[in-house]
């Protein structure tokens, strides 16, 4: 069975016709054409598919596309403020080498964005707790934590 789903992606109203069995992750990638959100484990363990739905981060693999009806979804494609401008987190990830193979990066960026939105000055422990549902097999996490702390400082400086 297919259903028409009307929802908002990165601030833009969208409509998609999806099979009711389909996950939000598959629908975003294959119906909407936003392939920034990655499919790692597809069972909610790795966090690569993290998107923000109505302000809360969730695993897009563990949500059905039909559940997105009327809701607002933010993906990594919506993170940068303009075509030629990166989000401070994206910029810091590049400078710190916080991304190696890059597969976990979109999920980690979305989780880090939510973390800094709620808590502009996170401690190391806050960052560890905030990213505990995101697995990275390349970096050893240290550079990711460095990048997030650096982005937090820059965002703080930009506000003051």
């Amino acid at each position: 069975m297919k259903k028409i789903v009307e929802f908002t992606v990165n601030g833009e109203p969208r409509e998609m016709t999806v099979d009711t069995c389909r996950s939000l992750l598959d629908a975003l990638r294959e119906e909407v054409g936003l392939t920034g959100t990655k499919k790692g484990c597809d069972v909610g363990d790795c966090g690569a598919c993290t998107v923000i739905v109505d302000g809360e981060p969730v695993n897009a693999c563990l949500m059905l596309a039909v559940e997105a009806e009327g809701r607002s979804v933010q993906t990594v494609e919506g993170l940068q403020p303009g075509v030629d401008r990166l989000h401070p987190l994206q910029d810091a990830f590049m400078r710190h080498g916080a991304s190696q193979c890059g597969f976990c990066t979109p999920g980690i960026l979305m989780m880090a964005k939510k973390l800094l939105d709620d808590n502009p000055n996170p401690t190391d422990e806050d960052i560890r707790f905030g990213l505990s549902g995101n697995i990275c097999r390349c970096t050893g996490y240290t550079k990711i934590f460095d990048a997030i702390k650096s982005a937090a400082r820059e965002m703080e400086a930009a506000r003051s």
Partner: peptide, 9 residues
């Protein structure tokens, strides 16, 4: 329980 993402669902 699980992760933050899981707990939000």
């Amino acid at each position: 329980l699980g992760s933050i993402q899981v707990r939000n669902r």
